[in-house]
Design a protein around this nucleic acid. Structure first.
Lengths: 228, 228
DNA sequence: TCGATTGCAAGAGCGGCGCTCACATTTGTC
DNA sequence: GACAAATGTGAGCGCCGCTCTTGCAATCGA
C-alpha cells in the first residue's frame, strides 16, 4: 500500500496523458469511421507504438468504448446543465435544454450514436454507464418545475400498472415530479431522440433540410401539452 | 438478347434459391451478432462453400446489407398495412399501426436497428431504399384521415419556413394531409421511434419492464393532440 | 449433336482486425 | 545499487473483406 494519489510520479502523469491521447485518437477515428471502424491497431499506429502496447491502457475494445461512452454522457450532461441553467422561465429552460441536445448531437453525431444509437452488438454496457446516463435525464427534468401538471387527459393517461413504474423511475432518478409529468418527460425525451435519430441517419433528407424549424416546432408542440 | 424471365432456367432457379439462402443465413447472423458481426465468410461456411463464392451473389457486404434493408422495410410496411387496415375508427387504426411497429421491433430488434438504428458507418444507403422506407411512413399516414386537424396551436406551431417543408414532404410521400397534420405525423413517428430506441437499447431498464404500458400511454397521449 | 460460351465454385493470397504471450526495457522504490 | 512493477516489443493465432486466377460443368447456338 503506497500513497496512491498524493504525489503523482512522472509515470502516472505519462500514463494519464497516454490515456487521454488514446481517447482523443479514438474519438477522431469514431468521427471518421464510426464505432465499427474504431481500431485499436490504428490507434497504436497513430500513437507510434506497437499494437499490443495499447492493451496496457485498455483491456480491449469494449473497455475503451465504455470510457468513451462515460465521457460522452458526462460532456453532454454538463452541456445540458449549462443550457438549462438560464434565468428565464421553466419553459424557456426546457427549450434551451432540448436545443442543447440537438446542438451537441449535430456537432458530434458519432458520440450521439455512441450513447443513444443502436446498441453496439457484442457490447454490454457496464453499470458504470448508468449514473452518467441518468445525469442527462436529470438535466432535462431540472427544467420541469415540480408544480407542472398535465393540461388534460390526466386521469386516463396513466394506467394503474404504469403509475408505479413512473413513480419508481422518478424515485430512482431523484425527480420531484408527479407520475403524469414523468410520463410527459419520457415522451418528450423519446420524441427528441427520435427526431434526432431521423435527422442524423438521413431519414429526413429531401424534405427537411435543415431541420431546425422542424425541431423547434416539435419541441414547441410537445411543450404545449404541459401546464407550466 | 435472350428472353430473360420468360422461362426460368434451372440455373436461374438455383441462383435465386441461393440468394434467398444467403439472406436467410445473414438474418440469423444479424440476430445473433448484430450488423458488425455479419460476416460473408461465416455465411460461406454455413453455406458449405468457399468464401469467395458468395461474391458471385452479392458484390460485397454493403450490397447484402442493402438487400436486407429493403426486405426489412418491405416486411415491416406489409405488416403495418395489415395492422392499420381494420374497420375500426381512424384512431383505432392509428394505434394498431403503432402497436404493429412495436411488435415488429420487439420481435426482430436487429432488423429494426438495421433500418432505424444508427447509420452503419461506411455504408451509404443507395436510392433503392427510399421507396421502401416511404412505404412505411405511408402506412402510418394511411391511418390519419385527411379531415383530421390539429386540436390547438394550429397557427403558431407551423412557421412560415416550415410550412413549405411540410407541404413538400406531403407531396413527395403522396399524402393528402395539411401541414399541421404532417407535423403531428412526423412528431408522432419520431416519438414512437425514440421510445423503441430507448426500449430496445436498454435505456429503460430498471424502470419500465415490460414497456407495454408505457408505450400504450405514449401513443394515447400523442393521439390526444389530434382532432380525429 | 458438338463446340463455344457462360456461370459457378475453388483456392491462394493481400492487408487488416482483436487479442495473447514471452521477452526486453525502462522507471520508481527501498 | 538491487529489485519489482510498469511499460513497450515482436511474433503469432484466428478472424475479417475482398481480389484474382484457374478448373469445371451447365447451357446455348449452329
Amino acid at each position: 500500500m503506497r500513497r496512491m494519489s498524493e504525489r503523482r510520479t512522472p509515470r502516472q502523469i505519462a500514463r494519464e496523458e497516454t490515456l487521454v491521447r488514446i481517447k482523443t485518437i479514438a474519438l477522431a477515428q469514431l468521427a471518421a469511421e464510426g464505432a465499427p471502424g474504431l481500431s485499436l491497431r490504428a490507434i497504436a499506429r497513430e500513437l507510434e507504438v506497437v499494437s499490443s502496447a495499447v492493451y496496457r491502457y485498455f483491456s480491449g475494445r469494449d473497455e475503451l468504448l465504455t470510457a468513451l461512452i462515460v465521457d460522452a454522457y458526462g460532456d453532454l450532461a454538463a452541456r445540458l446543465e449549462a443550457a438549462g441553467s438560464g434565468r428565464g422561465s421553466a419553459r424557456a429552460r426546457w427549450t434551451a435544454t432540448c436545443d442543447g441536445l440537438r446542438a451537441w448531437a449535430v456537432a458530434e453525431p458519432h458520440r450521439f450514436a455512441l450513447v443513444y444509437g443502436s446498441a453496439i452488438p457484442g457490447y454490454r454496457a457496464p453499470a458504470t454507464t448508468i449514473e452518467p446516463a441518468a445525469r442527462v435525464v436529470r438535466a432535462f427534468a431540472a427544467a420541469v418545475p415540480p408544480s407542472a401538471r398535465r393540461a388534460a387527459n390526466d386521469d386516463h393517461a396513466v394506467s394503474r400498472t404504469l403509475a408505479p413504474q413512473l413513480a419508481g423511475t422518478a424515485e430512482v432518478l431523484d425527480l420531484d415530479l408527479e407520475p403524469p409529468v414523468v410520463l410527459w418527460l419520457v415522451g418528450a425525451f423519446a420524441r427528441v431522440l427520435g427526431a434526432l435519430t431521423l435527422e442524423l441517419n438521413g431519414h429526413l433528407v429531401g424534405g427537411f433540410e435543415p431541420a431546425d424549424d422542424l425541431f423547434e416546432a416539435l419541441v414547441a408542440a410537445e411543450a404545449a401539452a404541459l401546464a407550466w
